[in-house]
Nucleic acid binder design. Sequence first.
DNA 1: TTGCAAACTTAACACTGTTAATTATATTTG
DNA 2: CAAATATAATTAACAGTGTTAAGTTTGCAA
Lengths: 204, 204
Amino acid sequence: MAISDRKEREKEERRRLIIDTATKLFREHGFEKVSLRNIADQIEYSPTMIYLYFKDKNELLHALHTEGFRMLKQRFDAALASLSDPWERFKVLGETYVRFGLENPEYYELMFMSGEPMQTEMTEDAWNEGLLSHACLESEVKNCIASGYFPGHEFRILSFTVWCFVHGMVSLAIKDRLKMYEEEERESLLQRTMEIMMSFLEKK
Amino acid sequence: MAISDRKEREKEERRRLIIDTATKLFREHGFEKVSLRNIADQIEYSPTMIYLYFKDKNELLHALHTEGFRMLKQRFDAALASLSDPWERFKVLGETYVRFGLENPEYYELMFMSGEPMQTEMTEDAWNEGLLSHACLESEVKNCIASGYFPGHEFRILSFTVWCFVHGMVSLAIKDRLKMYEEEERESLLQRTMEIMMSFLEKK
DNA sequence: TTGCAAACTTAACACTGTTAATTATATTTG
DNA sequence: CAAATATAATTAACAGTGTTAAGTTTGCAA
């Protein structure tokens, strides 16, 4: 049945069109511009057409959410590809995470701060992309421990500790909570804070 | 002019009525239930009446925001009142912050994660309540340094470092990002992570 | 060619924040 | 006291949101 195959393919294509358009609006005009009607306008379909491809808006947002985690994982892989020293890899992983967050605030918000895409059915592989990035962190921490770093600490708790730290830094920054620091000072604040944190961790 | 005084007073009373009702809906049914029409229904006024007391919804949210910081500061003062040891005070401050966030997720979100109340005119004393809590943290860190803790570190950067950490922990928790950890395990994870962080800081 | 099923649209509902025009209520003035 | 005026609150409306149900068009199969 080549004919139903084609239909399947076309359906998948339109699904991608929706996601890509949403992504585009997302990147260009920020979170709030991603309304079903905006997307529909852009692709010249009726708003309700989207419901034939996504159960509701959350499910669409969840697709963007997944997209974001794919991007993050890609950055991780690219950054770590040429590095072998565990501590070096650990440090670069953290820096990559922070840079991704600061450079893609909309994605970061959707991935780690928004409540909406989380209340979709989180069964099956829906949450897998996220787990992959998390596993990435735990793996690097494990490597560090295997090389003598963080003596006497569990990799799971330690991973979570550094996640809390970098997430806190990124989310405060992108949500404009650094107004008590001078504007020009902020970048160096983030930089130096990162170094401080690393120095605390490095002490054995 | 006692008559215009009374008017002033009544106006202030109605302003408070709006804030209190918003707070109530906020606490009872969460963030999303705070719509101008919901508030208006509750106090049996028309929705547009609110605009006579607040420029727009952001300004109202900002009032709740301020309310939240007042609550937090109060908790800080209550928790620290009987403590004198700098390190003890520092630890309790952190624990109080985390507990406040976990117990008042709606307030915490508004105060530290939401973008809306921040885009009001942040001149004058509008942002003061927030600064007060921040100053509280910096003051305790300063005290620790004065007592020999954190040798060789600036209080500003160190304060920010621990803020990042606790904020990251709270915000990940209340935004349901701990699904990769077993449900029963989560509370002890937060507890132990807090301890780990403190132990890292304590090492001189 | 008719029947059917999939794809899509139109219309509507119940919300949201917000503005302009209008009415009712007080207070001040002639 | 009566008329003019300022204040307070309301109604109606606009433009936007997500979502559902009903209707329409389209293309494939019997």
